[in-house]
Design a protein around this nucleic acid. Structure first.
Lengths: 216, 216
DNA sequence: ATTATTTGTAGAACTTGTTCTATAAGTTTA
DNA sequence: TAAACTTATAGAACAAGTTCTACAAATAAT
């Protein structure tokens, strides 16, 4: 039966409704394709071991970066597979990481139907899809050559203070333990936020947890 | 044209793919119905003011400050409307609160297609849908009432505010969006911290992220 | 039915955090 | 090597956040 499939797709997402929505679009684009709807990682692996897949549309539900390493795992089984990340999380923080890890595209769930179709077609035809937003981001990274791991931009002192902030210490705590003025701590905080392009502690914590164990 | 609609539905969700998936299912159940796909709260209100709606399938994760109190707001416009909450958040924390607030059902996005159809049909026919899980939950709460997920200790308002804090909003942001005094926000923050036994935002974020998707 | 507790809310006084500006020392770069 | 950033640091004025107290309404407990 697989021989009647023009393409083999996997749609992996824990939400049924999303799987079905994506399946519907895939069938619209390629009527004679087979779509495997899967809800978790082990199902994906099982399927990859039995069926050559052209495109995997992959939801990433965990913002902590654990799903990053599933990409090489998948590619080890099927090196030519195209992976389109379909994510509810903000492009700005994650997209480039996933593309570097070997994904063929990163698509926001906020995208309208045309964009979704475009992404799928692009990945199938040219092997990649990069949204306007991400293109700009990459330009930034290349032209201003920011390091891949944004934490590397921080000076030693800045990292020291960022870490304390992330661990929950107040400015006053920090200024006491480091014996500096509170205004100094604030200045650091500002510089850290600026360098990492965030504007609240919550985002700092996210970035920190995301990148702390990653080599650039 | 509205007179040819057997039912009028609204599907409100910020993700296109979800709106379309739900629309597809609704059309499958009631071929001759009209479905309005809307992406934010103000669109919902606008539509409610012009069209009598039988069922609103409402995602509660969208970013424009949607919360519990939109349910009474909606019901004030159309008292007989049925609201089915279709949520990516864990039932255990939110379901009962939304049902108490006047929703007719609470459906997890993890549900399979049959469950989704069942929920929609139940709400349309009998005016309510309560999943096995939630039924058990209610039993537990009524009969055995064991405290499991610490987030359950928080009141509705406390959860609302905790969520905003976790997402990185400042006290001032919160007091502006909720139209309360900044001292009030601080009071909440304190109570939240006390109940969850933490003393800084960082820990709150950790607890929140740890428990938000966990069943008890 | 009465009492106790929780919930939602603030005012005023106070503490903490931010901004804006600035400076000396260290590092790059043209 | 001089000019140009970067880094580590504050003072002062101002903004944001906290504390402590309080009170009415809703809930729960006795």
């Amino acid at each position: 039966m697989e021989e009647q499939c023009e393409f083999n797709f996997i749609v992996a997402d824990d939400h049924t409704i999303v799987r079905q929505g994506v399946t519907f679009i895939l069938k619209e684009i390629h009527k004679n394709s087979c779509v495997y709807q899967l809800a978790n990682f082990s199902e994906i692996i099982k399927r990859l071991n039995t069926t050559p897949i052209d495109l995997l549309v992959l939801d990433i539900s965990f913002p902590d970066g654990t799903s990053l390493n599933i990409i090489p795992t998948i590619k080890k089984i099927q090196p030519n597979i195209k992976i389109l990340i379909f994510s509810a999380f903000d492009e700005n923080i994650y997209a480039i990481r996933y593309l570097n890890a070997g994904a063929s595209g990163y698509l926001s769930k906020l995208s309208n139907e045309d964009e979704i179709k475009l992404a799928i077609k692009s990945v199938l035809n040219s092997g990649k899809y990069i949204s306007k937003n991400i293109q700009e981001k990459i330009m930034d990274t290349y032209i201003f050559k920011k390091p891949k791991n944004p934490l590397e931009q921080l000076s030693n002192r800045e990292i020291e203070i960022a870490k304390l902030l992330v661990e929950g210490f107040s400015n006053i705590d920090i200024c006491n333990t480091l014996n500096i003025q509170k205004s100094t701590v604030s200045t650091y905080k500002n510089r850290i936020f600026e360098k990492l392009d965030v504007d609240n502690l919550s985002s700092l914590i996210q970035i920190f947890n995301f990148y702390k164990d990653k080599k650039e």
